[in-house]
Amino acid sequence: MIKLYNYELSANCYKQRLFLSILGLDYEAITIEFFPGMEHKSEAFLEINPLGHIPVLDDDGFMVRDAHAILIYLAARYDPSGRWYPTGDPGLLAKTAQWLLFCEGTTSTASAARLHDSLHYDFDIDAVRAGAHRLFRVADEHLWFAEQEGYDWLVPTDHPTIADLALFPDVILSEEGGVSRQDYPALHRWTDRVKRIDGFTPMPGIFFAAPART
C-alpha cells in the first residue's frame, strides 16, 4: 500500500494526490499537521525526512521525498504508457525536466506568497509576488505559442506530462497569495485543460472546470 505523508492545503502534496488520482492508485494519506502544529519539524517526522518537509511517499517500504522526485517515481513505476514522464525521447525528457525545474521557481515565489498570506510566513511579499509574475509571464508566452503550434501542454507532445501537474497547483492557487492571473489568458486556458484530464481531483480552493466539448 502506498502511503503519502500529506497536508491537505499544501500545493506540493496536492501534486501527488492529483497524480495518484489520475493514475487510479489507491493510497493512504497520513496527515502531517503543517500548520499550526509544525508537525513536519517534529522529532518523529524528522526520522522520516531529515529535511523536515512534506510530501514523502512510502511505497511498501521504499521511501522517496521531494515533490518532483515523487512524481518521477510514480510515473516511472506506475505509468506503463511512459507518456507522463517520457524517458524514451531525449528531447521531450529534457523539456519535462526543464519545466519541473521551472516549478522550483514558482514554489519559491507564487507558493511563498500564498504561505505569507494564509499561513503568516515571513517573506518579502512584494519580491515573491513580483517573482511569480515574472515566471507567469514566461509560462503564458510559452503556452500561447504552444497553442499556435497545436500543443495543449507545456511539453510539445499530445499528452500532458508530470511537468503540467507540477506547475498547476502554484498557478491555480496563486490568488491566495495575491498574485492575479488576469494578465495571463493562455495560462488560464491551460488550467482549464488540466482540470479536464481524466481522473482530475480538486483540493480546497480549486474548482472543477465545465466539462470539455463532447
Binding site: R189, D192, A209, A212
Partner: peptide, 8 residues
C-alpha cells in the same frame, strides 16, 4: 474565449 471558459 474558448469553449465554456470565462475571461477576465
Amino acid at each position: 474565449l474558448t469553449y465554456r471558459t470565462t475571461y477576465h
